[in-house]
Nucleic acid binder design. Sequence first.
DNA 1: GAAAATGATGTTAGCGCTATTAAAAAGTCC
DNA 2: GGACTTTTTAATAGCGCTAACATCATTTTC
Lengths: 349, 349
Amino acid sequence: MSRTKKRTGGVTMDHVAREAGVSLMTVSRVMNNVPGVKASTRDSVMRAVKALGYSPNAAARSLARNGAGRIGLLYSNPSAGYLSQFLVGALDGAQTSGALLVIEKCDPSLESEAAAIGRLIAGGVAGVILPAPHAESERAIAALRDAGVVAIAVGTGHARADAHGVRMDDFAAAAEMTRHLIELGHRRIGFIEGAVNQTASVERLKGFETEIRRADPPADCLVEPGGFNYRSGFEAAERLLSDDNPPTAIFASNDDMAAGALAAAHRRGLDVPGDLSVAGFDDTPLATAVWPELTTVRQPVARMAEAALRLALQESRDQSRRDSRAPIDQLLPHQLVVRASTGPVPHNS
Amino acid sequence: MSRTKKRTGGVTMDHVAREAGVSLMTVSRVMNNVPGVKASTRDSVMRAVKALGYSPNAAARSLARNGAGRIGLLYSNPSAGYLSQFLVGALDGAQTSGALLVIEKCDPSLESEAAAIGRLIAGGVAGVILPAPHAESERAIAALRDAGVVAIAVGTGHARADAHGVRMDDFAAAAEMTRHLIELGHRRIGFIEGAVNQTASVERLKGFETEIRRADPPADCLVEPGGFNYRSGFEAAERLLSDDNPPTAIFASNDDMAAGALAAAHRRGLDVPGDLSVAGFDDTPLATAVWPELTTVRQPVARMAEAALRLALQESRDQSRRDSRAPIDQLLPHQLVVRASTGPVPHNS
DNA sequence: GAAAATGATGTTAGCGCTATTAAAAAGTCC
DNA sequence: GGACTTTTTAATAGCGCTAACATCATTTTC
């Protein structure tokens, strides 16, 4: 093991090419899904790849592509669980598609954001992924466009006109959750809003209200502002539960706030879901870390990040050819996850 | 902006070399801190680097080093906040030291771990970083050693004989926190253990017990098992608080369990810290996401990850030269963070 | 004061992959 | 059926950087 010449993992394209009896370049074409390779040739290459356990060297790829494939990722401080999922997804995507991820942290302040964007641009990225709060920043997107860098907004409430986007259908997901609550018999439902400056919050509220209006027999609702963090959820739930006619269910627009609502309920001696149902949104790790485990909506964060990375890569490559100016809007499927925090409406209410 | 030939960030070593009036190789030497460069030459190179805003291309580096610098990171499912901090730290380190991070996920099961290790080795990594639970896995470390891959254990309770390690002083940190509680007047303190198969848990308990024994006037304690997650913290706190003579303070061996303890306290209508003090460990984002914010110990997770990456890089390079067999044990400083969840012992108890 | 022993820098040859260009094979046409 | 396209494959030249070796100044040594 000590005298091995190259400790790189061994198999290279060359090996694959020899094994498959084709040229190195043909293997490259197959690996990159470039059209113009006979199906039979492609097959034999794929077989060789599998046989040898070949996996492309990201560094070499990035280098050969002349730095294209350097993608930036700006993050500040979304809920902890969100970030880790997002990073994992992006990293995974980077690995499989041979991109080089450059992550850059910033504070929520505008100056800090601008500085981070500047560093990213100076670092020579071809595209930048903007999750959660930054996806709403006109300034950031404008700066990126001015520098000729592709911007991908992730997790906004609706498609942007000035940037490509990857997102989920917040409206439909919130509506589904609301329907779930209504089907359980709840007719007075509290809703905790997310941060108002994020369009996703607005869509979630709209989805909720639309479904409330559609309920039969009719239902009504109480809406409290929140800020996407535990504490604001706790406080909003306190207000909701101290109402003269408190709701029998609370739907928080993210899991952190739902956890806060859970704490508020417990503090009042309420059993969840016996006395009060609580629903969250996002399905972050927190959802299963609390007790009872949260009914929530699974936002495919990791897949969204991966999709964003691919999109950034593809668009940055395309852009250098021609200016295709129609922003792409990629919508990923969500899923209602029913766990232990929601149940039938209590009898005596 | 559209006709730019290379969108790589522009400046390369060649530019720097020309600017400084030296050869490309000299620049490389300066950038890698290789000895044998005259101080004046080094200076002028550094000046050119700054003037041009040069930053080395990680991909090219990794490639030229023949794959050395490919570092794996195995993760399963530590507390969410921990992972994101860890990833960020590792990513950061990778960027600055020009390593290529390959992350690999696995389930807690042993087979899954073995499979992931296998993939990592097949991927040709030169070193693997093993955070939290995997750092204790004899099997994983043995597999890595057999493949001639450097293993770095992160966050174990004490130094390992079979792998390099980066960790904090769990014993001392737990002792400090216990002292903090004792100084606030608490004389009956509950402790919630972490997962028993992790040596860090054991050290934290030892630190706690040592300090309890040292208290003057004497203090006593109640120890409950836990599993490093919210739910186990909640349940352990329930048991602690239903004791005939309940503790006035609870020290949980991580923040997730402390959050659970908080919920249990609230459920019983106890005020924190008025009636009960609660302390956590790790200072994950959860610590400030709950209310009241947790007094905890800051574990420098990001820095540990970064240190682990550097160590992996350095050792994997050294190992190929000679077999230096003394495992390195790097200890990083922690910090007691006093927030709102701990206070003086209540008068009437 | 010439040979050997040290520095300090420059040269050369890739790392593994992708563009680009050239060549060959396979169709197409009149 | 041979000149002319159109596929498909092969060959060549780097991407930016570093290891290993070569080269040129300096010293040092006897």
